[in-house]
């Protein structure tokens, strides 16, 4: 089992989440590795008014979606991808 460690992480937000939080990014301390759902739960606890958006979002690390059950660590960038609507 990998050893847990505290890491300062820079998180980027977009679209409705960026507008609701009134910021495009924030820095938080996470205990890694964490699963995608744990990261979203943690961020929702910091911003309870935006919990529905966080709970319908996905985490992207280094420009890619992540497997939901894998412990996440060792990344350079973390983006919160709320429901997309391109096209």
């Amino acid at each position: 089992m990998p050893e847990s460690k505290l890491r300062t992480v820079h998180i980027r937000y977009y679209a409705q989440l960026k507008e609701a939080l009134r910021t495009a990014d924030e820095t938080v301390v996470l205990t890694l590795p964490m699963r995608e759902s744990e990261i979203l739960e943690y961020l929702a606890s910091l911003h309870p008014a935006q919990r529905p958006i966080f709970m319908s979002s996905r985490v992207a690390l280094d420009d890619g979606y992540v497997p939901s059950e894998r412990g996440l660590d060792g990344f350079e960038s973390l983006d919160i991808i709320s429901p997309v609507s391109g096209g």
Binding site: E36, S37, M55, S56, R58, S68, I81, S82, V84, S85
Partner: peptide, 17 residues
């Protein structure tokens, strides 16, 4: 207003959580 977004994306999140 922001478009509600892709339902497949939303459902994927629901099924994960």
């Amino acid at each position: 207003q922001w478009s509600r977004g892709c339902r497949a994306h939303f459902e994927d999140s629901l099924s994960r959580i």
